[in-house]
């Protein structure tokens, strides 16, 4: 029997699908079967990602980071009941609180994916509160340090006053 798709190579993968009592048969060669979505060889890219997560999540981190005490940390989110075992299975977290609960295990994963595991982007306008202000102060403090290092004292004084002004706003 020849492959249904290419009509060139002999059919090697025979699949019978029954959906709501309707039976369909497919006969493909190995090459076409790999291209065909309906015939899976267990190489689902999503599955691969999840298993990589699981691996990272469960790897003990012996480097000098605080996650070495991960063993005593809870493995269940008190808010939604999600467990770290479930994360390893589905590659997703249960709720926003999970990010805090599983922090020690999650941070190395985030570092692997994103490099820098700290958000520097947009802040929600209404609920972001004073984050924007604090971020600005941090930025100015870096500027101040740079001005002092390069002995630009006039500029340093200016920046210092700006920081004071913003800190007053914070209250």
């Amino acid at each position: 029997m020849l492959c249904e798709k290419c009509q060139k190579r002999p059919a090697a993968v025979h699949m019978t699908k029954i959906v709501n009592g309707n039976k369909t048969e497919t006969h493909l060669c190995e090459v076409c079967a790999q291209v065909d979505n309906s015939v899976s060889f267990g190489l689902d890219p999503k599955w691969m990602l999840q298993s990589i997560f699981a691996e990272l999540f469960n790897t003990p981190h012996t480097e000098n980071d605080p996650s070495s005490d991960a063993g005593v940390k809870p493995n269940r989110c008190e808010k939604c009941g999600f467990t770290d075992a479930q994360f390893s299975q589905v590659g997703r977290l249960g709720c926003p609180t999970c990010y805090d609960v599983f922090e020690n295990k999650l941070d190395p994963v985030l570092r692997r994916i994103h490099g820098n595991p700290r958000h520097t982007g947009k802040i929600p306008k209404r609920t972001g509160g004073t984050i924007e202000l604090r971020r600005e102060i941090e930025e100015l403090k870096r500027e101040l340090q740079a001005a002092i290092t390069s002995e630009e004292y006039e500029k340093a004084a200016e920046v210092r006053d700006k920081i004071r002004g913003l800190e007053n706003k914070l209250g």
Partner: peptide
């Protein structure tokens, strides 16, 4: 929104 200063959205 679920947002945290360190990890963003």
């Amino acid at each position: 929104y679920s947002f945290c200063e360190k990890r963003g959205y």
